[in-house]
């Protein structure tokens, strides 16, 4: 490569950088029922983390995504239409949607996908939306926050104040990975997105059996057949305890609810449960009290102590 070419490429990449800096990244935050109404610590830490890495989050008048387990199982068209109504809210402001929950991601992604791929669906949804004066053209994209964070690994490292040094068991949850059409570039049997992020925070990601398996709560089973949901969770927690994890890190408030409340119901496990946003918040030096971590059913006190110790070592 000639010197001139190299200079030209450098110039281009600098120009791109300037362009990126000029237009700040913006998304409409779709917090989802569980984060905003049951685990505000997840919503709070998400807002802190995204602000620190320079991504603006907007608010819109969203309903429940609606939850895929119950609503899609009862009536698919209702699920699709209400999902699209949510997308219209962001669409009106010309922004894309950022989800922090696999359920919301799955619902909204699928509603969008079903809408785009079939004319029959487009007609059905728009006929329904017309009744409340809305319409949709399919131009909004739905993103999962883990994917966006992964693109900003350098910003995460730059904002990290504490090398956490925790041994974490990653729980992906089903509807991030599957159906794999959502992520053509990720191997659903061997993903490496959340691993990269926790490693950037100074954590060790543990390997364990059935790491990519279900938490047991999806498909309406959490509310419809609790015994089945808890048996699946028990099996999962056994595998996590076997490898000596300090905590379970998830990317879905519904899995979070199942992992946290489910352990309290089972009474046989007590591994602290952290949403990825909470873990990053801790590494950014946010005090656990400011994140309302005490709202977790399984105490996070041991984690807080370890983080405090790691902070002293970092200082």
């Amino acid at each position: 490569m000639s010197e001139q070419q190299v200079t030209q490429e450098q110039n281009e990449s600098q120009e791109q950088q300037v362009a990126q800096e000029q237009v700040p990244e913006r998304f409409s935050l779709f917090p989802g029922c569980i984060a905003k109404n049951m685990y505000p610590s997840i919503e709070k830490s998400t807002r802190i983390v995204f602000e620190k890495i320079g991504i603006e989050l907007l608010d819109h008048k969203y309903s429940c995504c609606p939850a895929p387990g119950v609503f899609r199982g009862y009536d698919r068209n209702t699920h699709m239409t209400l999902g699209v109504r949510n997308l219209v809210m962001a669409n009106q402001d010309g922004v894309d949607v950022l989800t922090i929950c696999n359920g919301c991601y799955g619902s909204l992604w699928e509603a969008n996908h079903m809408f785009k791929k079939s004319k029959e669906n487009q007609e059905f949804v728009n006929k329904m939306l017309e009744k409340i004066g809305l319409s949709y053209d399919g131009s909004t994209e739905v993103y999962h926050f883990a994917d966006i964070l992964h693109k900003h690994l350098d910003d995460i490292k730059a904002n990290k104040e504490i090398d956490l040094g925790l041994k974490v068991a990653i729980h992906y949850g089903c509807h991030y990975l599957r159906p794999s059409e959502k992520h053509p570039d990720i191997n659903p049997e061997a993903p490496h997105i959340v691993e990269d992020i926790v490693e950037a925070l100074g954590c060790e990601s543990l390997e364990f059996k059935n790491k990519l398996s279900c938490c047991g709560a999806g498909g309406g089973v959490w509310s419809g057949a609790e015994d089945v949901a808890l048996k699946i969770l028990d099996d999962k927690m056994n595998k996590i305890e076997e490898v000596g994890a300090d905590c379970v890190v998830n990317i879905c408030p519904f899995c979070h609810l199942q992992l946290d409340q489910g352990q309290a119901k089972l009474k046989t496990h007590k591994v602290p449960v952290l949403h990825l946003s909470e873990l990053i918040g801790l590494a950014f030096g946010v005090r656990p009290k400011h994140l309302a971590m005490h709202t977790h059913m399984v105490s996070t006190r041991d984690i807080e102590k370890k983080v405090k110790k790691a902070k002293k070592e970092s200082d």
Binding site: M38, P40, S63, C64
Partner: peptide, 24 residues
């Protein structure tokens, strides 16, 4: 919402600096 807001969580939200009632 499938999981509506409770008065307890409303209070926690305001303590940690989130809008007491979500913008939704």
């Amino acid at each position: 919402d499938g999981f509506p807001l409770s008065p307890e969580v409303e209070k926690i939200r305001s303590v940690i600096g989130l809008p007491r009632k979500p913008i939704d």
